[in-house]
Amino acid sequence: MKYAMKKLLMMLGTLLVVSLCVFLAFSVIPGDPALRKLGTEASPELVEQMRQEMGLNDPLIVRYGRWFIAFLGGDFGISYNYSTPVKEMIANKIPITLTMAIMAFLMTVLISFPLGIITAKHENGILDRTILVINQVIMAVPPFFSGIIITFVFGLILRLFTPGGFVSYTQNFGKFIRYLFFPSLAIALPKIAMTVKMLRGSLIDEASKDYARTAYSRGNNTNGVLYRHVLKNALIPVITFLGMALADMVAGSIVIEQVFSIPGISRILLTSIGNRDYPVVEAIIMGIAIIVMVVNFLVDIIYRIVDPRIGLEDE
């Protein structure tokens, strides 16, 4: 309990620091949101009046405090460009991006775990070497380029999906999931390759330790030693990596959305950056940061459950 509370307090402290950095970063970027909203032909008096209405003339610390308190209350502010609550602008986009990240994560777990175990069991065999070579190739290809290849092969040649033919989850959830399968695969591929390599190495390392040899000496077969003794310990570093990978998949989804013409968070984010629409950009970046922090917090808790020795000094 003490360990979890310590991690929770660290997460809240990190949230405060991140929020301050995000707010300050967009406060010092050149460009006047009021002038952007009114246009370059607006008079200085009108621009000054707009700045006053937008609260841009208040001291920086006052603006930050007002924004952060409102954010904690679920109020992300009003878009400078569209004069619309930010929450309404991103509410129906977040499920798209999160669905892609979750699908990519599930693909990573479901594909990499069996492959990692198989390669470890057949160390230095033909299958092991073949998978390792494929892994190296996949890890060398950026996700956005994988997305282009997937679009060309599965979309244009095999016609398993229609590039650009996105279907919203509000219209047809089944078609929505089917369309997101290939973008999610593009996100997952490098993570799958990394997880296979990591799990394989961890399994081989654990299998060489004394407790595994003792288990063999007691008459356990390879599968018995692997699944009853080795796998649990081998999963500890893999769980940490998967936690970081899930957080990275959320950010990666934004890039892949552009490749597959998916109307997710990415379109609003890029448009808002160009328009100096800071409330929208700040809300999206803070949302991504919160997801990353929550995932890391859950990973720490799971890590402790898998290995109770972790964090004993905090008890």
Rank of each mutant, 00 (worst) to 15 (best):
S43K: 08
L12T: 10
V133A: 14
A245I: 01
G13Q: 04
M139L: 15
R200K: 13
K87A: 10
H122V: 06
I78S: 10
G155V: 04
L72W: 08
D314P: 00
K6E: 00
M139V: 13
I61H: 15
Y64F: 15
L12F: 15
P59L: 05
Y80L: 12
I94S: 07
N124M: 06
S79D: 07
T170P: 01
M244A: 09
V255C: 04
L132N: 14
I78H: 05
G65D: 08
T119Y: 02
T151R: 07
V62G: 06
V292S: 10
I131K: 04
R267W: 02
G311H: 10
D248E: 13
I134P: 04
M10D: 11
D300G: 01
L35S: 12
A207E: 09
A70F: 00
V255I: 15
G116I: 08
V86N: 03
T214I: 11
I239Y: 02
Y211G: 13
I118D: 01
S217V: 01
T119K: 05
A207C: 09
R200E: 00
D307S: 06
N275L: 13
I291L: 14
I131R: 03
S168L: 09
S83L: 12
I138N: 05
I138E: 01
A289Q: 03
G39L: 11
L312T: 09
M286Q: 13
A283T: 05
D205T: 09
R66N: 15
I256Y: 02
P143H: 10
P183L: 08
L156G: 00
G147P: 12
V167M: 08
M286C: 09
M10T: 04
I288L: 12
N172D: 15
I96M: 06
S83F: 07
V28T: 13
L60R: 09
V294P: 06
V153Y: 14
L298D: 01
N220I: 01
G274F: 11
G164Y: 05
K175Q: 15
M11S: 12
V153W: 15
M194H: 10
I177G: 02
N57C: 03
G55D: 08
I291W: 11
A212D: 03
V62W: 12
L180R: 09
